[in-house]
Simulated scan of single mutants.
Amino acid sequence: MEGTPPMERRTELKSALRIEDVPTVRAIVAQKLREAIMSGNLKPGQRLVERELCEMMGVSRPSIREALRLLEADGLVNTVPHRGPMVSTISLDEARQLYAARAVLEGFAGRECARLHDPAVVRRIGDALTRLKTALAKPDMIAVLEAKTDFYAALIGGCQNSFIERMLKPLHDRITLLRITSMSQPKRINKSLREVTAIWRAIQSGDKDLAERCCVDHVKAAAVAALDMIQRSMAEEKA
C-alpha cells in the first residue's frame, strides 16, 4: 500500500466505503404496504387513511403519499374521488380479461424459455420452485407468494422479450390481489404446485409445445379458482 500513488489510494478507499442501493423511506413504506396487501392484512376495498398509516408506520405524510403513488402505479391502490386511496378491487369482468391476456402472454413466455433453453434461466426457475415447496411445507403464505412471484419473474424474464415483460408485470401485480385468497385453498395450493412443476420440467427438457401448453393450462386453472372466489364473494354480499 505504501507504494500506491495517493490518487489510487483515494479511489480504492472511496470504492471500499461507497454504499450502493440504499432504500429510500418511500421504497421501504411501499414494500411494507405491498406485503400487507399480499398477506391480506389490508383487504381489497379497504380505505388507506394517511393519518392512520403515519401513526402505524411512524413515518411522515409525504412518505406515505409517495409510497401510495408507487402502489397506485402498480395497480394495487386506487384513488377514489371524495374517499381517497383504497386497496384496489377486481371485478368479475376485469378478472376474466386479466386471465385471458395472461394466458396468451405467459404461454408465449413459456414457449420462448423452452426454445432458448438458457441453463441460468432453468436454474433460476428451479430455485424458485424449490423455495415454493419449502414455503408450502411450513406453511408460510407470504413466503409462498414471494416464491411464486420469483417463479413468474424468472419465467417472464427468461423469454428475453422486454415487451412481454412490460405487459405481464402489471397483470401479475393486479392478480396478486386475488392470489392470496385463492392460494389459501388447500386443493388449489397442491394443484398449483403440480402445474408450475410441470412448467419447469417442460422448460428444462426444451419442449416448446409442452411448455406453452402447461403455462396456458396453469393460467386457466388459476382463472377458474379466482373467478369462482369472486362470484362467491358477490353472492355473500347480496345475501
Rank of each mutant, 00 (worst) to 15 (best):
L178V: 15
R34Q: 14
R18A: 08
K220S: 03
K133G: 11
A225D: 13
Q160R: 15
L42P: 02
T197W: 00
L132G: 06
E146V: 15
E2Q: 11
V144K: 01
I28E: 04
A235T: 13
R213M: 10
L129E: 01
E52F: 01
S192N: 07
A239W: 02
M167L: 15
M38E: 08
V196E: 01
I37Y: 02
A153M: 09
T11C: 00
A103P: 03
A95D: 03
G206Y: 06
G126A: 06
G40F: 09
C54D: 04
M86C: 09
R174D: 02
A235S: 11
R47C: 00
T89K: 05
D93E: 10
R213A: 10
D74M: 00
A128V: 13
R131C: 11
Q185S: 09
A101K: 03
P44K: 09
R51Y: 10
M86I: 11
A235W: 10
P186N: 01
A235E: 14
C54A: 05
E52C: 00
V196A: 03
R124I: 13
Q31Y: 09
P119F: 06
L177C: 10
M56D: 10
A67G: 06
A198N: 04
S88C: 02
R10W: 03
E165S: 14
K208F: 10
K133E: 12
D118L: 11
L33E: 04
I189Q: 10
A100P: 06
A153H: 04
M141Y: 13
E52M: 07
A239R: 15
P170W: 08
L227Q: 09
A128E: 02
M229G: 04
V29P: 03
Q46V: 14
P119H: 12
T79Q: 03
T24F: 04
V80W: 01
Q97K: 05
I230F: 02
G58P: 07
E195Q: 07
P81T: 00
Y152Q: 09
A226H: 04
N161F: 13
Q204E: 12
R188P: 09
L68Q: 03
A16C: 00
R34C: 11
A137I: 14
A114H: 04
L155N: 04
P23A: 11
M38R: 12
E50Q: 10
A198W: 02
N161P: 12
I90S: 05
Q185P: 12
I203Q: 04
R123F: 13
D209M: 10
S184F: 06
E94L: 07
L53T: 13
E236Y: 13
R166A: 13
A67K: 07
L116I: 15
P170S: 07
M57K: 03
V22W: 10
G157L: 08
E8G: 02
A101Y: 01
Q31C: 11
Q185L: 15
S15A: 07
K169I: 14
A198V: 08
T176L: 13
R213N: 07
L193M: 07
R47K: 13
R65S: 06
L68E: 02
S60R: 07
L136I: 15
Q231N: 13
V122I: 15
R166H: 12
A147I: 10
E195N: 02
A128F: 05
R83C: 01
A67Y: 03
A67T: 11
A16N: 06
E212S: 09
S60Y: 00
T134M: 06
S91W: 04
A202D: 00
R65P: 01
R47M: 05
